[in-house]
Amino acid sequence: MSSSVTKGRPQKSAAPRRAGDVIFSSISFSAAGLILATLAGVAIFLTVEGVPGILASPDEVKSGESFLPYVGPLVFGTLLAAIIALLIAVPVSIGVALFISHYAPRRLGSIFGYVIDLLAAVPSVVYGAWGIAFLAGKIQPIYEWLEKNLGFIPLFAGPASATGRTILTASIVLSLMILPIMTAICREIFLQTPRLHQEAALALGATRWEMARLAIFPYARSGIVSASMLGLGRALGETMAVAMVLSASGVVTFNLISSTNPSTIAANIALSFGEASGLTVNALVASGLVLFVITFAVNFVARAIVDRRKEFSGAN
């Protein structure tokens, strides 16, 4: 696999090797090493603090359950919320990025891009407050409609929440939170695709969509996956907004519109941490470790998918 990646690269011997080179490459190598050290540090911290929580007997922790039954519903909720958020955010962010980079008039596009960048900075507390005060209220009649008309689908079985603070609402808020960063990365990548490729496609009579499909997307694929991974990472780990918006009860259900919803790991840590002490803290850290492992696994799968395709790097 690695041979296919190195193919297009200039060989190391192509440039003369000097003292500056050695220094520069060792700086960048140690920067990379430092990251590994940090990650190892976090992993060690999580393990050391978490293992007593995993081993704790049910009557030593506040939940009164042993670790697996305790963390299981949380894992389910975390994945459900993040996946719904990603399902919404990926197409929308690609659409928005494409609009800004290739569809909108250039000046307008850069203004819109600017506005969307700004949204990455809105603190999650504000997203949460907005989710409760505005979105939940507006979306609640839609949930009632869904229950009445599509109630035969288990997803919309209801009974519809009276306040609209459901896992679907939380996922929508999450998707909005990850949208700016995903859009920004996609946009930069779309803008960087080689002009010549695009022009060639257009010159052959391709429509704008065909040009995007043939000249932009293959080039941007790895970047889009990276952006999605960043978004997924944030969606999995987002704490405050979910804690505020979601009416969480720690159940396992696919019902998206009722007021009884699964909680997520990160939100549960935030909700329980303040009043926790002793082994309960360890159990919470252990659930953080589980989240870490999930992220690890998700990325592993994503990386495997991307690597199966040839890396598209540099303009050749």
Partner: peptide, 14 residues
């Protein structure tokens, strides 16, 4: 309890 025990009803933060 400090953690709400039943699974029903509406839950809200703070």
């Amino acid at each position: 309890v400090e953690t709400w025990p039943t699974k029903g009803g509406e839950a809200a933060e703070g």
